[in-house]
Simulated assay, not measured.
Amino acid sequence: MKTINELHKDNKCIVVGNAWDPMSALIMEQQGFNLIGTTSWGVANSLGYQDGEIISFDEYLKVIKNILSVISIPLSVDVESGFSINKEEIIDNVLTLAKLGCSGVNLEDSTKEYQLKPKQEFSELLKDLRSILDNANFQDFFINARTDTYIALQERQLEETLERAALYEKSGANGIFVPLMSDKNDIKSLLSRITLPLNIMSLPNITDIEELKEIGVRKYSFGNAMSDAIISTIEIFSKSVLEAKNTKELYLHGNLRTKFMN
C-alpha cells in the first residue's frame, strides 16, 4: 500500500473520498478513489449523532476498524481535535490509529466549540506528535494540520492562516488543511507561503477540482457533502413511499456495481 506522501508524488491533486462507514468506503475505492478520508460529521450522523466528538473515541475506533477491514487503499482519519483536551491523550489516540494501520489524520487546531487554540500550543502538540510517531517507526504517517481560522474568525482570516500554516509546517505537519477557505486569491497567497500540500474542502462556490489543481492545490476533499446528499436522498424516498403509498421509485436506479466482501 502506498503512503500518502507517495500518493502526493504520483498525483498533482489527490481527490479524497470522504467516507462514513465501510460501505461508502468500499464503494469509493471500487469507483477509483486512491485515498479514503473519514468525515467525522458523516460518521457521527451514521450512528445517529451530531458531529463534534459527541460519540466516544472507542465508538469511532469501531467504525475505523470496520472500514480498514474492507479497503486496500490508505485511510486518513478525521480525528477532529483529538477526542481529548489533554495533549498526551490526543497523541495516544493518534498513535492508536497508526498502530491499527491508518495512514494519516486530520487534526484541527480548534476546540469542539470551534474556538482556536493558541497557535504555539498547537505547534508544540504537532512537534511532540511527530517525534513520537517517528520514534514508533511511523515516519510515513501523514499529519494533515487543519486550521479553523475561516470558521472561528470574522476578520484577519488570511493573516492568521498564513501565520499558523508557516508555524505548523516548521512543527512537523505533512500537509495544511483550511476548511471554508474559498477565495482563490487567499488560496494563492497561502500557496506562495508554504511548501506543504494544501488541502481545500468542497463548498457550493468551490467545486471545480481542475481549476484548483491548476493554481497549486494538492488535495481536495468534500467532507460531509456526500453523506449529507445520501441522507437527503433517504429522506426524499422515505417521504415518497409514505405519501404515495408506492415503492416504484425505489427501483428506478441502475444495476449496483459494487462487489461486496464474502
Rank of each mutant, 00 (worst) to 15 (best):
K213Y: 01
I209D: 06
N224D: 15
M226T: 15
S182N: 12
I90G: 02
L196W: 08
A98E: 05
R164S: 04
Q120T: 12
A145Q: 00
I90E: 04
L256R: 14
I236F: 11
K65W: 05
I55K: 11
L95F: 03
S182G: 10
G82I: 06
A229D: 11
K119L: 10
Y49C: 11
L35R: 10
F33W: 09
L133K: 04
V16R: 02
T39D: 04
P118V: 10
D208S: 14
D140Q: 13
V15G: 04
F177A: 11
V70F: 09
K62L: 13
D21Y: 02
V16N: 08
L126E: 00
V241R: 09
H8W: 02
E113L: 14
M261N: 15
K62Q: 13
S192L: 12
L252R: 13
E163F: 03
I85F: 14
I200L: 08
N262V: 14
Y220P: 09
P179M: 10
I64A: 08
L256Y: 13
D58Y: 12
I187C: 06
M28G: 02
Y251P: 04
L162E: 02
D134C: 09
I36W: 10
V94G: 11
D58M: 12
N137G: 05
Y251L: 14
Y220G: 10
I14H: 01
